[in-house]
Structures are given as structure tokens and as C-alpha cells.
């Protein structure tokens, strides 16, 4: 087992999403209009996952995902598969961008596995024995939904946590070795972070494989005080978008967990050079020891054009390799997917 979980030092990975191929978007549109069947759409999704894995492989990513090809949106996808949610209609996020924000109208119930099939397919299709499976966290699902049913948001979040825990256990049974809980909403309300952390702990309870949490574009100083209390092994955070200025917060809050270091900006089409990536990693190494540093983009890549997303991964891996060589000379050869925290 030990050996199976071994990874090169500075393992490269992605946060989760990847741009959907144009033909997949076309297939989804045709399916919506009744022009292709459910089976045909499923085949298109499967093919898209294989294409994404191939992109990740060519780029040299150590721990790929399926690019979240099957998920339109990170809350919607789960709300559609759980009992208790209802969709009234689209809500605007800005300008001309909308999303379908679900409403909780009755007790949330788990009726069928959410992403176990998705995981199994990816595992079978993957070039790498290590894959990351992402799941939206209980706090973010609640924060990005309307609560019509539960007395408090807290009640809703803890019910969601229990359900996510059931799903995570099934994922581990199916062979998952690296689970990432996505909680971008976690820093939204400073006064709620404390109990939200308890809820995430509830969601990952008994999950003895590597568990990470992903948070992005928020005020990290609201979350980092809970570094120890939050029972995950890894924090995958966005840094490139803010010019790596937030790295100092790691020192301020005595951060000592693994860091998934956001090294390329997903909100900017300019492709960072390998040298830029390497120098950012060297900067991160001032705050985190080499065997606790994973390398990833800031966030999901899905909003970028596919060729740019791909090139960003290529350069991310190339930049990582530069620093890897430097570390090898200092005796750092490998790290591991072994969990560090007992849950």
C-alpha cells in the first residue's frame, strides 16, 4: 500500500474542472432538444472524460481528474441528485451570467449514489493509478441554495454533511485514494466559519484516504485560523490570481498542513511560462516544506478555452520539473498520498 501511494516530490494535479470539448457542448444541446438519446449523451460524456484524461496525460499531470465533464455546475449537479431540492429558475451572478440556484423545500435525503459511477469510470479510464475525485462541500451547497425548509442554515449544513459522508464512504469503497471537498463559499460569513468547519469534519469523518479542501477567491484570514481544527490533510488554495500575496498568511496562521498551491491563474488567458511557475514554487517553498507541497492551478480550468487550459497545464508541469530537479539534489525524491490526519 505504502508503495502504491508514492508520488514524485511536488506532485502535479488539477483542482477539478476542465473545458468541455465543443462537440460535447453540442451533444448536450442536442440532448436538451430531444435530438439524441440519454445513452448517446452518456457515451459523449464518457468519450469526453477520455479526451480530458489524455490532455492531462500529455501535459504530464501526476494526479488527474475527469475534468468534471458531467457536471454543469458544482451545486446544481448535487442538488439535482438529492431529494429535497427544487429549481424555480435561473438567477443572475453578474451581467449576463446566470445559474440555477436550487431551493431546499423538504428534508434533504440521499436516495442514490451521486458520483460513484463517475469515479469508477474515471478510475478505469485513467493513465495514472492516482486520481482526484471532487465533491462540493456541505457549507457551499447550503450557501449557494435557498433554504425554505430548515429552521437554520446550520441544520441544513449538518444534514448535508451526513449525506456527503455516506457518499465519501462509498467512494473509498470503490477505491478512491484522494478526495477533494470543494468549499469556495467557506469564507463568505466570518461568523459562520467555526461551525462550518465542524460540519466539514462531520462530512469527512472516518474517511481514511487523502482528503483535501479547496477554497478560492475569498478572505483566507477567516479560514486559516481553523487550519488545525479542520480535519483535512490538504488545503488547495488559489494564489496566482492575487500575485501570491496571500502566501504570507500561511506564516501568520502557522499553517502546517499540506498545501495544494495555486500556481497558474485561471481567470487570465495569458499562459504563465515554466520559469514563472518555477519561481512561484520556490516562493511557496519558503512557507511549506517540499514533501507537503502539491502543485495545481488556482481553481477549475473550465472557463478557459481548451487550448489555453492545456498549455497552462503543460507549463505548470514543466515549471514544476525545474524545481523538482533542484530538490532532488537536496535529497527530496518523493512524497505520498497517505493521509496525515486521522478522522
Amino acid at each position: 500500500m505504502e508503495k502504491e501511494l508514492e508520488l514524485p516530490i511536488l506532485p502535479t494535479t488539477v483542482i477539478g474542472s476542465y473545458p468541455r470539448p465543443k462537440w460535447l457542448r453540442e451533444a448536450i444541446r442536442l440532448h436538451k432538444n430531444g435530438k439524441i438519446s440519454d445513452e448517446e449523451l452518456k457515451e459523449a460524456f464518457d468519450d469526453a472524460v477520455i479526451a480530458v484524461l489524455r490532455d492531462h496525460q500529455v501535459a504530464g499531470v501526476d494526479i488527474p481528474t475527469d475534468g468534471e465533464m458531467r457536471r454543469d455546475e458544482m451545486v446544481e449537479y448535487f442538488a439535482e441528485r438529492l431529494k429535497g431540492f427544487k429549481f424555480y429558475g435561473p438567477v443572475r451572478v453578474w451581467g449576463t451570467a446566470y445559474y440555477r440556484k436550487p431551493s431546499v423545500v423538504s428534508k434533504i435525503e440521499y436516495t442514490t449514489p451521486l458520483i460513484v459511477d463517475e469515479f469508477k469510470f474515471t478510475k478505469n479510464a485513467s493513465y495514472s493509478p492516482h486520481i482526484k475525485i471532487t465533491i462540493t462541500g456541505p457549507y457551499t451547497i447550503a450557501e449557494w441554495s435557498y433554504n425554505e425548509y430548515y429552521k437554520t442554515k446550520q441544520d441544513l449544513v449538518f444534514d448535508l454533511a451526513k449525506i456527503i459522508n455516506i457518499e465519501l464512504k462509498k467512494l473509498v469503497e470503490a477505491g478512491a485514494t484522494f478526495i477533494q471537498v470543494d468549499e469556495p463559499a467557506l469564507p463568505t460569513h466570518a461568523e459562520e466559519v467555526e461551525w462550518a468547519v465542524d460540519a466539514i469534519n462531520e462530512a469527512v469523518k472516518g474517511i481514511n484516504v487523502k482528503v483535501g479542501v479547496h477554497i478560492c477567491y475569498g478572505d483566507y484570514s477567516r479560514v486559516l485560523p481553523y487550519t488545525d481544527k479542520l480535519l483535512v490533510d490538504q488545503f488547495a488554495l488559489e494564489f496566482a490570481n492575487r500575485n501570491f500575496e496571500d502566501l504570507v498568511l500561511l506564516k501568520r496562521f502557522n499553517f502546517d498542513k499540506e498545501l495544494g498551491f495555486g500556481v497558474v491563474d485561471v481567470h487570465n488567458r495569458r499562459v504563465e511560462s515554466p520559469e514563472e511557475v518555477a519561481s512561484a514554487i520556490r516562493k511557496a517553498l519558503e512557507y511549506v516544506p517540499p514533501d507537503k507541497l502539491f502543485i495545481n492551478p488556482d481553481c477549475g480550468l473550465k472557463l478557459l478555452p481548451r487550448n489555453i487550459a492545456f498549455q497552462k497545464l503543460v507549463n505548470m508541469v514543466a515549471g514544476t520539473k525545474i524545481v523538482r530537479e533542484e530538490l532532488k539534489r537536496k535529497g527530496y525524491i518523493s512524497t505520498s498520498l497517505k493521509p496525515l490526519v486521522s478522522r
Binding site: 424555480y88 429558475g89 443572475r92
Partner: peptide, 8 residues
């Protein structure tokens, strides 16, 4: 009212 769907 941007924060809720039009129908609501």
C-alpha cells in the same frame, strides 16, 4: 431582486 428567480 436580482438575488431570486424572476418567477419567485
Amino acid at each position: 431582486m436580482d438575488f431570486i428567480p424572476e418567477i419567485v
